[in-house]
């Protein structure tokens, strides 16, 4: 195992190196605000008939009359203090809205990721161990088809099949049946909250709402994950050290699991960041299809209503999450591969 100190150093360095990227994101959202069509002050004015004087007043309040660099400094100051403005749609501060809705998005994303991983890894490994067998062909077909199905189509097809035709899925809107009792809010994750409260009825209600959108999203990332697992396992199994293991009489299980799989998982870990980012993007589509009350659908509604403060907040949030995810991936990789600590 690698020592803790180099790992912490690595994590710190990685965090530092992601700062420029984060700063870039902030600049981008700032510019986004400036180039967006329309004058923000006009939106914030009381109505379409607001007088020029009123608009000017709001402009002054928002600091839009100041030179751009000063606006940027104020913007950074606000972000530093957790002020992301107010949503016109809900009338709430954007931070509050995002905090309320984030657990819904995360619950969906993590469930889907877990589902995808628990299917993709075994499938990829089995396929790689028996190249050109029936299993292998089936997995390859699944991978090929999987990347071609847009999430919004597969989600709608799931609804058609399980809600309309079979009638076994609940009405595809929201996180929990409106008639079911809402568990007390602890973590914001309904599955965890209801389990903590011992309310298994609510747990079941939440789970049955979650399963279709989670499957939709899992299907979307299943293909790249399985494909990667298969490819890297295939490559590892033909490498020299596997031959060494065989030549020295290690058991098949040891060769495959300890020598093969552990090495094959390294590239899979590295693409986890990309996979997660794709999922955050796909969230927008899935949340729209299933009317899921997450951050993405919130941002989308705001975007379509030309309400830009939530969009800005959302983009910043996504970038922040993404940096965290990459950091985690990096630390995992550092734990798994002793070679990188030397660079």
């Amino acid at each position: 195992m690698v020592g803790v100190a180099p790992l912490a150093r690595r994590a710190g360095r990685r965090l530092l190196s992601s700062l420029p990227a984060l700063f870039g994101v902030v600049i981008f959202t700032f510019l986004l605000m400036r180039v967006l069509p329309g004058d923000p002050a006009v939106f914030f004015a009381s109505g379409p008939n607001a007088g020029q004087a009123e608009i000017e007043e709001i402009r002054r309040q928002m600091g839009l009359d100041k030179p751009i660099p000063e606006q940027l400094v104020r913007y950074l100051w606000d972000i530093g203090h957790g002020k992301l403005g107010r949503s016109m749609g809900t009338g709430q501060p954007v931070v509050t809205d995002l905090a309320n809705r984030l657990p819904a998005s995360l619950e969906l994303t993590f469930t889907a990721l877990l589902l995808a991983l628990s299917l993709a890894l075994p499938l990829g490994i089995i396929a790689a161990l028996r190249p050109n067998s029936a299993v292998d062909h089936a997995v390859r077909l699944l991978c090929t088809l999987g990347v071609c199905v847009p999430t919004f189509v597969s989600g709608l097809l799931f609804i058609y099949a399980f809600y309309y035709l079979l009638g076994i899925a609940p009405d595809p809107t929201g996180r929990i049946d409106i008639f079911a009792s809402q568990p007390p809010n602890v973590t914001g994750f309904l599955l965890i909250d209801s389990a903590l409260a011992g309310d298994w009825e609510a747990w079941w209600a939440a789970a049955s709402q979650l399963i279709l959108p989670a499957c939709t999203m899992a299907l979307f990332v299943l293909a790249p994950l399985a494909r990667m697992t298969r490819a890297s396992m295939l490559a590892v199994m033909t490498s020299d050290f596997i031959r060494t293991g065989d030549a020295l009489g290690l058991s098949r299980r040891r060769v495959v699991l300890v020598y093969g799989l552990r090495n094959a998982l390294l590239p899979v870990i590295t693409i986890m960041g990309i996979v997660f980012s794709t999922m955050l993007g796909a969230n927008v589509l899935v949340e729209k299809v299933f009317s899921w009350p997450g951050v993405a659908s919130y941002a989308l509604d705001a975007l379509l209503a030309s309400d830009y403060a939530p969009v800005q907040g959302f983009v910043l949030l996504m970038a922040g999450i993404f940096v965290l995810v990459n950091l985690t991936v990096d630390i995992l990789y550092g734990l798994a591969d002793p070679r990188i600590s030397i660079e």
């Binding site: 020299d240 293991g245 030549a247 020295l248 009489g249 290690l250 058991s251 098949r252 090495n263 591969d337």
Partner: peptide, 28 residues
């Protein structure tokens, strides 16, 4: 087959290869 060879390999007959660094498991 493998069931006959596995106990022999390493115990009765062994092999070493060219490019020793690649022949060892890099993460063990």
């Amino acid at each position: 087959g493998r069931s006959v060879m596995q106990p022999l390999r390493g115990a009765a007959m062994s092999m070493i290869f060219q490019n020793p660094r690649a022949a060892l498991n890099p993460i063990r």
